[in-house]
Computed example of a mutant assay.
Amino acid sequence: MGVVSARLAELGVVLPSVAVPSGNYVPFRLVGNLLYVSGQIPRVDGVDHFFGVVGADISPEDGYRAARLCALNLVARVHAALEGDLDRVVACVQLRGFVNAPPDFQRHPAVIDGASDLLVEIFGEKGRHVRTALGVGSLPRGASVEVDAIFEVERQF
């Protein structure tokens, strides 16, 4: 068992299954040592969670939980891309978080902390990243949050 897999077990974290893309795109792309992961919404094993506008339909605390689920799906995508070897992750380079929020909402960073916190819990210092947290007028499938990321990984030859 790898270090990151052991950390997941220690945290009691089980990676969800990942679905095939619902549109004309790929879920991840490896370019050199950078792994780009497409946007993930709060879905667990094919079931969507946390619908609506953060700060209107759901609380910022539920938005935080939604962002954690998004990050869990990011990790599941990385796991698939790296054929199960999460120890190949050198660093999470960048995380972008999108919060479905009303125009006057200002707690986007606190919501996206849910994703950031989970990545650091799982990967430690390798999970620290640069980040953007934005408010948007709507998200796919009515999701409250969506996140995407770029990871630096060790190449296998």
Score class of each variant (00 low, 15 high):
Arg68His: 04
Val53Ala: 04
Leu15Glu: 03
Ser17Asp: 14
Asn24His: 15
Val120Met: 07
Gln40Glu: 14
Val136His: 06
Val99Gly: 05
Leu11Asn: 08
Arg141Ser: 13
Val44Leu: 13
Tyr64Lys: 00
Arg7His: 10
Gly97Phe: 00
Arg43Pro: 02
Ile122Met: 02
Val145Asp: 03
Arg88Ala: 08
Leu118Arg: 01
Ala56Lys: 14
Cys92Pro: 05
His129Tyr: 14
Asp87Ala: 14
Val37Cys: 08
Gln106Leu: 14
Pro16Cys: 06
Gln94Glu: 15
Arg43Thr: 11
Ser116Thr: 09
Ala115Thr: 00
Ala133Pro: 03
Ser59Met: 04
Leu118Met: 09
Ala133Gln: 02
Asp113Thr: 04
Ser144Val: 08
Leu82Phe: 05
Gly46Asn: 07
Gly137Leu: 11
Asp62Gly: 03
Arg131Gly: 10
Leu72Tyr: 02
Pro109Leu: 02
Asp117Tyr: 00
Gly39Arg: 10
Phe28His: 10
Arg65Gln: 01
Asp57Ser: 10
Glu146His: 10
Val145Gln: 04
Asn24Tyr: 13
Arg29Leu: 15
Ile112Cys: 04
Ile41His: 09
Leu69Thr: 03
Leu30Ser: 09
Arg96Ala: 11
Leu8Arg: 08
Ala76Asp: 07
Asp45Gln: 08
Gly127Ile: 03
Phe105Asp: 06
Val130Phe: 14
Ala115Glu: 03
Arg88Met: 10
Cys92Thr: 12
Val90Gly: 05
Tyr36Ala: 08
Val18Leu: 11
Asp87Met: 10
Ala149Asn: 02
Leu95Lys: 00
Leu15Trp: 03
Ile150Phe: 07
Leu30Trp: 04
Gly135Arg: 08
Ala133Asp: 09
Ala67Ile: 06
Glu61Tyr: 12
Phe50Leu: 05
Leu86Lys: 09
Tyr64Trp: 07
Asn73Pro: 10
Leu82Val: 08
Val37Lys: 01
Leu82Gln: 12
Ser116Arg: 09
Asp45Phe: 07
Arg107Val: 01
Val37Asp: 05
Gly23Phe: 15
Ser116Trp: 07
Val111Met: 06
Cys92Phe: 15
Ser38Glu: 14
Ala101Asp: 09
Gly84Trp: 13
Val90Asn: 07
Pro140Cys: 12
Val47Pro: 02
Asp85Val: 11
Val111Ser: 02
Ala110Pro: 01
Asp57Thr: 07
Pro60Glu: 09
Ala19Thr: 15
Pro102Gln: 12
Ala81Ile: 09
Val89Met: 05
Val37Gln: 04
Ser144Asn: 08
Pro109Tyr: 08
Val37Pro: 07
Gly52Cys: 04
Arg96Asp: 09
Thr132Glu: 14
Asp85His: 11
Cys70Thr: 00
Ile122Cys: 06
Pro27Val: 05
Ala133Lys: 01
Gly55Met: 07
Val130Ile: 13
Arg141Gln: 13
Pro27Glu: 13
Asp48Asn: 12
Gly52Thr: 05
Arg7Glu: 13
Arg107His: 12
Asn73Trp: 01
